[in-house]
């Protein structure tokens, strides 16, 4: 860890408090050697309208996704991307974004696929920074390129493929989409474009826990007690559970993956990024419609 963690007591209850920083901490630490601030927002132009001074931009689609295959970029492309943004292997990376850090959490998860050790989220994200009247700049991104080693992605610990989900039945699945997507009324989030799933509903036995329940009004993460009430008391997760979370393309479930892994301390949580756009179009996979999770398929 290059830059000492935010000592704020606000995060002390969480399993990995060093994964979050407050806006106050970031303000004080801007310019600290070894710290790189990254904006990763849903809106691809938001960075250009004004960003945290000194930050660089990484876009979930145009930077992190492979341009041809439906997969993430490989080790060489990741090294070129982040090295070009001034990030070295031992950098402390703080990611922030719009929409309660939804896409920032996705970027953090992709950094984790490459085993980048010290990557954190700005609690409350872009909206909180802005609401507090903190400085944003429209200066062009200027990073001095550094060398980042080519590290091959290690998907298995935190990423689930369709075949993994089929073998997972009997273990908890968390569907983080909207209730309408879960029960099969629609295949996309309200107000989101069609992404081509041919069938609607959810993966059998998945519990519905919309991702945004984990975020407070101001976009910060809810307290440990509140999160426990959502994920342990209501959704029934218990220590030792082997959990897979999914949504539509793996972005919203990255947010939930972050909560379960770094805030609640569940081990081995995986994000199924194929999610509904794969499952809902795959041939001969079981689907349940309606608001009940359904039973383990007999096959």
């Amino acid at each position: 860890m290059t830059v000492a963690p935010d000592p704020s007591t606000r995060f002390a209850d969480f399993a990995h408090p060093d994964r979050l920083v407050s806006t106050e901490w970031l303000q004080e630490n801007l310019g600290t050697p070894g710290l790189v601030v990254v904006e990763s927002s849903e809106d691809v132009l938001l960075y250009e309208t004004g960003h945290i001074p000194g930050s660089v931009k990484i876009d979930w689609h145009t930077d992190l996704n492979d341009p041809v295959e439906r997969d993430y970029i490989d080790g060489a492309a990741f090294a070129a991307l982040v090295g070009g943004k001034g990030i070295s292997r031992d950098s402390t990376v703080v990611i922030y974004g719009d929409k309660s850090n939804w896409w920032a959490a996705y970027a953090l998860w992709v950094f984790t696929l490459f085993g980048h050790t010290d990557v954190r989220l700005l609690d409350g994200g872009r909206a909180k920074w802005q609401a507090e009247g903190r400085e944003l700049t429209t200066e062009r991104e200027s990073a001095t390129a550094v060398s980042y080693p080519v590290v091959e992605r290690n998907d298995a610990p935190i990423r689930a493929y369709q075949s993994d989900v089929l073998e997972h039945f009997g273990n908890p699945l968390i569907d983080v989409r909207s209730p309408e997507e879960y029960n099969g009324t629609r295949t996309t989030a309200p107000a989101y474009p069609e992404e081509g799933a041919l069938r609607a509903g959810h993966i059998p036995t998945a519990k519905s826990v919309p991702w945004a329940l984990a975020a407070a009004e101001d976009g910060t993460f809810r307290s440990l007690d509140e999160l426990n009430a959502i994920y342990r008391d209501s959704a029934g997760l218990t220590d030792g559970d082997n959990v897979i979370a999914y949504c539509r393309i793996g972005e919203r479930s990255s947010h939930t993956w972050f909560v379960l892994t770094h805030l609640l301390g569940f081990e081995g949580v995986r994000n199924y990024d194929g999610s509904w756009t794969e499952w809902g179009s795959a041939v001969r996979v079981p689907i349940v419609r309606g608001s009940e999770p359904g039973v383990v398929p007999n096959r």
């Binding site: 691809v44 132009l45 689609h61 145009t62 341009p67 474009p193 069609e194 992404e195």
Partner: peptide, 14 residues
Amino acid sequence: TEAVSPLRIRGMTA
């Protein structure tokens, strides 16, 4: 399409 992703362009088409 390449600069902002096909998905985002769909919003404009709509």
